[in-house]
Design a protein around this nucleic acid. Structure first.
Lengths: 214, 214
DNA sequence: CTTTTAACACCTAGGTGTAAAATT
DNA sequence: AATTTTACACCTAGGTGTTAAAAG
C-alpha cells in the first residue's frame, strides 16, 4: 500500500543566495507518541494508546529539481506532489514510512550544497548547513480507510485522479463549508488514502519559507 | 513534434572507481554533412545534398540517475529510454535537436564529478574528466515518416506503446529476417517517428562501455 | 469489533503508428 | 512531388475512491 500525499505540500522560498546551490527536501515527523481513533458520533480524533517513535529515523524525500541554484528555487513554487507515503515498514522504494492512526507533520529542509558529501547518495540530513521549516496547518492524521466524509469529498473534488467519483449535483456545499473553516486556500488537508487525514487549522509564521496547499 | 528514441541506447560500464561520483550522459552527433533521400526501388539511402552542422552544439541528455557512484553505475544496465528527439530548432524543453533526413550517431559520456562546476546546471561537457564512447551499430537516419517498412514492423513488434498495431498473424517473418541481418540483439535499430531510421550493421569495440538495444 | 488488503472501474498522463491535410 | 504537421484511435503506465474480503 503506497499512495501519494494529497493535497501536496507546496512552498515558496526567499532569502537564498542566488548563485549558491541548494537541495530542498521534505520529511514527515510524528506530532506525538499517541495512537488515535476516530469517534464518529462526536466527529473527532481521540487518544487510543501510546507508540514509541523514538528509534525511527524519518525518510527524506529530496525534491527532484535538486540540486538547483537559489535563484531558480526562489523563482518558482516548490511542489512536493510526487511524495509517496506507505505503511509498509519494509518498503525498499524509498517512500516515506508512516504508521496508520497517528498524527504527523511534514517538514521542509533547505540544504546548502557541500562538496564534502553527496546528499542524493546518503539520504539523510547533514549536520550543518540545513534550515528546517514546518507549518501547523499541514498536520494530518493517517488512516487506511477514510473516517471523515468531508475529507473524502474534498479529495474527490480536488484530486484530478478521483474525477470518476465526482457528482455534478451537490458537491459544492460540503467543500464551501470546509473552505470557511481553514485559513489557507484549497487544497486544504494533507491526506492519504491508506492515510486519509483530518487537518488542524492554524497560521504560518513569517519565515523565509511559506506554504500553501497543492 | 517530439518523440522518444526507440530502440533506446543501453550500455554497461566497467572500470569506474566504485566510490567516486559520476554523471553519465548521452548526445547525438552528425555522422557527416550530407542530406539523404531514400530510394525506394533500391531500398537504400542516397546522398541528396549538403548541410552545415558546424555551428551547432549538440544538446546533452544527462541520465536521470546522475550523479551516482561508480559502484552503482557498474551494477546496472544504463538505459536512456526517456531520451526525446525533436526537429524543432526552437525547442525549449531540453530535448535533443536533430534535422530530418540526416545521419547521426549517439555518444555516451562518463563524467567524473568535479565540485568546481555543477553539470546539471551548465548542460554542457566539461573540458576534462570526460570519457566518450560511441558505437557504429547505433548509427541511424532521421525521418518524419518511415521510409522502410521493416523498421515500421520492428517498432510495432518491439515498442509496447505500438501494441495496438500488432497483427497476430504474420509479423514473425519480417522481424526474424532483421534479426539475422544485425550482429546485436533486438531492439535492432535506433529510430524515431518524426525520425524513423535505418540502422547500419557493425560491431562494438572492447571498450569499458558496451552497448545493446533497449 | 476494528483495521488492512486486494481487485476493481474510472480517471489522468503520455507514447504509438496511421492517414489525411498542410506545407515546401 | 517530397516532406512535415495534425488529429486520431489505441495502447502503456499509474493515481483515485469503492467495495468486499481478509486479517487482527
Amino acid at each position: 500500500a503506497r499512495r501519494r500525499m494529497f493535497p501536496s505540500v507546496r512552498v515558496k522560498v526567499k532569502g537564498l543566495e542566488p548563485l549558491k546551490q541548494y537541495y530542498i527536501a521534505i520529511d514527515v515527523v510524528p506530532v506525538d507518541s499517541k495512537r488515535y481513533r476516530y469517534v464518529y458520533h462526536s466527529s473527532q480524533w481521540m487518544v487510543a494508546g501510546n507508540t514509541d517513535h523514538s528509534c525511527i529515523t524519518p525518510r527524506l524525500y529530496i525534491h527532484p529539481d535538486s540540486p538547483c541554484s537559489g535563484e531558480t528555487w526562489m523563482r518558482q513554487i516548490i511542489s512536493f506532489d510526487r511524495v509517496k507515503l506507505t505503511n509498509n515498514e519494509m518498503d525498499d522504494k524509498g517512500h516515506i514510512i508512516l504508521q496508520s492512526m497517528h498524527k504527523y507533520k511534514p517538514r521542509v529542509h533547505v540544504i546548502a550544497q557541500d562538496s564534502r558529501f553527496d546528499l542524493a547518495q546518503i539520504q539523510s540530513l547533514p549536520a550543518e548547513g540545513v534550515q528546517t521549516f514546518s507549518f501547523q496547518e499541514t498536520e494530518f492524521t493517517t488512516v487506511t480507510a477514510y473516517q471523515n466524509q468531508q475529507i473524502t469529498k474534498l479529495k474527490i473534488d480536488r484530486n484530478p485522479f478521483a474525477k470518476g467519483f465526482r457528482d455534478p449535483g451537490r458537491n459544492r456545499g460540503v467543500l464551501d463549508g470546509l473552505l470557511e473553516t481553514y485559513p489557507w486556500r484549497p487544497p486544504l488537508a494533507l491526506d492519504f488514502k491508506a492515510f486519509g487525514a483530518d487537518s488542524q487549522g492554524g497560521s504560518s509564521s513569517s519565515s523565509p519559507v511559506t506554504s500553501s496547499g497543492g
